[in-house]
Design a binder for these strands. Structure first.
Lengths: 339, 339
DNA sequence: CTGTTAGCGCTTTCAT
DNA sequence: ATGAAAGCGCTAACAG
């Protein structure tokens, strides 16, 4: 039976009061002076009828929907996405907000449609998330709602939530140094284009800057820098295999965990042990980092925290500035103490 | 400047017609007989003003929001989730729907709140997704909107989208058989509780049923069945290591890819090669399956297709029955042809 | 201290 | 063939 929805009028009627009174009481208006008795009656009536406010009707009046949009380029591609979404979801739930998620594939046409769809539903705010970190394209439509950029930046919207890649870069090197590793360190994954080219990614640039600064502070240089476009396991494997045919470094600093995964494979095939023969440190704290044997020591991308921070920022009345989140160092077993 | 939203009245005014006419024309009512000229004027006016209908207002009248809720127990935990969400998102987008995603952690209290939140927003339908496959708890609230279960079942809601685990189970064995492997096959991951106990998972049960039927059809039995609770790499590793200390099987059939990952590690440590010494076949087509060397041959869980199917089913006027999706066999290099 | 009234933007009879 | 008017459920002025 398509039982009709309970409305505020029903509650008021049962409580023997006006809808105004019921409305004020249920929305928790404090400045009004309705009798305690009235409060009780209304709450009782609402409870007994199982009253739930109609958000659409309320939105029409107040322009508030208690919903936000999470618009991202990719959701499934990287494990990255789900952490971000999960964190955002949790924060939204705590604030009693609901989250629309929309995927654009980085396609401007879809971006526009996504933003429109969200705006049509009167969302109270929008988060633009970038899975591949970079300057994010935000369609040029009128946006009266607040916006925060997640894992990316935008010229139009100054509020960003980013990982502290520079510090993370420094930490990776520090880990090596503290273990007494100070000669023959190889960098795996460096890509000249990414660092300087037109497709430069801000965040990778900062990661590398941190790494390089820490190295030169210690008076060190990488003995080799192996470069590739995609940071996928097979590249890590080929590059490492080829590297090992020439030399056996003391440590390999991998630009992400998937690359490190490939390095592990190459090392194993070459009969070398981690960390006995070669130490490895990496970035992201991808799921696979914990699957590897020994576990991979890595500088984590704090996905969930970033997602949380984004919605907290979005919901704040007057956010002054974005957030730069620390990348936790996750020590597992891939660095050998050489001192 | 908080530019005021363009309303239907604005459009009508500019077009020199009534809001009624504008409404009919813009919503594409066909049965009405408004002049072609009127159509043109209204569309022109709407376009020039950048008119966008207010979904809340429309919902108030029509009870339709063109939005659906995707309520799942976990979103980030497993890579499983993102594929499901991604597929659902894509289908929703195509149908010009928007998707709310909500996470419950499997907690009844959160489930109720999630459903309420969705209902308060007048969603046109709900999808209950289970990441850990099983009978799903659906809070007992009045639901006037259609419901489909994704990767799970519910006594209350008959419409489910499920993978064809039985067929998948048979396929895994078939792959082995076709490669001429017919003796000393070990099953890794079987868990008596899961198969028969109170926590029995329907889907795993079906996967195992397919496996067992295919085996006995071929007159074969597993030489050993190694069991563990969590299907994580470390269990695959320990169980396999211990297995290899006793015997060297011709093949290991793993109940999921993470277990297979562990088996690979144990095999490598034992100096055995895949598939040279031992063949491996598995389930899920987890991301790691493609990272392994050689690539892992596995029976894939069609996540995206399942997500798609769920919203397509949800949006269908009169769905007669749920969907049972084939699990594609992904042949990579972990089975050696022994014939 | 409480109730009446007027919309929010839209769709939909029902009159013209 | 087109428009006036009512009303979806709610909140906010404004009276009492």
């Amino acid at each position: 039976m398509p039982k009709k929805r309970v409305t505020l009028a029903d509650v008021a009627r049962l409580a023997g009061l006006s809808t105004t009174a019921a409305s004020m009481i249920l929305t928790g208006k404090t400045d009004t002076r309705l009798s305690a008795e009235a409060h009780e009656k209304v709450h009782a009536a609402a409870a007994s009828l199982g009253y739930r406010p109609n958000v659409a009707a309320r939105a029409l009046r107040t322009d508030k929907t208690r919903s936000i949009a999470f618009i991202s380029d990719y959701v499934a591609t990287t494990r990255f996405a789900s952490g971000l979404i999960r964190g955002a979801l949790a924060a939204a739930e705590e604030a009693k907000y609901v989250m629309l998620v929309l995927e654009t594939g980085g396609d401007p046409a879809r971006e526009i449609k996504a933003v429109q769809a969200a705006l049509d539903r009167q969302v109270d705010g929008l988060i633009f998330a970038a899975m591949r970190a970079r300057e994010v394209f935000v369609p040029d439509v009128v946006l009266n709602a607040p916006v925060v950029m997640l894992n990316g930046t935008s010229a139009r919207f100054p509020l960003s939530v980013l990982p502290d890649e520079y510090r993370g870069g420094r930490d990776a090197v520090r880990l090596l140094l503290e273990a007494g590793i100070d000669r023959d360190i190889v960098l795996l994954g460096h890509n000249a284009e990414a660092e300087e080219g037109m497709f430069r990614s801000e965040m990778i640039t900062r990661r590398l800057a941190g790494i390089r600064d820490a190295m030169s502070d210690a008076g060190l240089r990488f003995t080799e820098e192996l470069s590739c476009w995609d940071w996928e396991p097979n590249h890590g494997y080929t590059l490492s295999t080829e590297l090992l045919s020439r030399r056996r470094p003391q440590a390999i600093l991998c630009l992400n965990d998937r690359l490190a995964f490939g390095a592990y494979q190459a090392l194993a095939e070459a009969g070398l042990s981690v960390p006995g023969d070669v130490s490895i440190v990496s970035f992201d704290n991808d799921e696979i980092a914990s699957y590897l044997r020994p576990g991979l020591t890595t500088i984590a991308l704090p996905h969930e925290e970033m997602g949380r921070a984004a919605v907290e920022l979005l919901l704040q009345p007057n956010p002054q500035s974005g957030a730069m989140l620390a990348m936790p160092v996750i020590e597992r077993g891939s660095i050998r103490n050489a001192s």
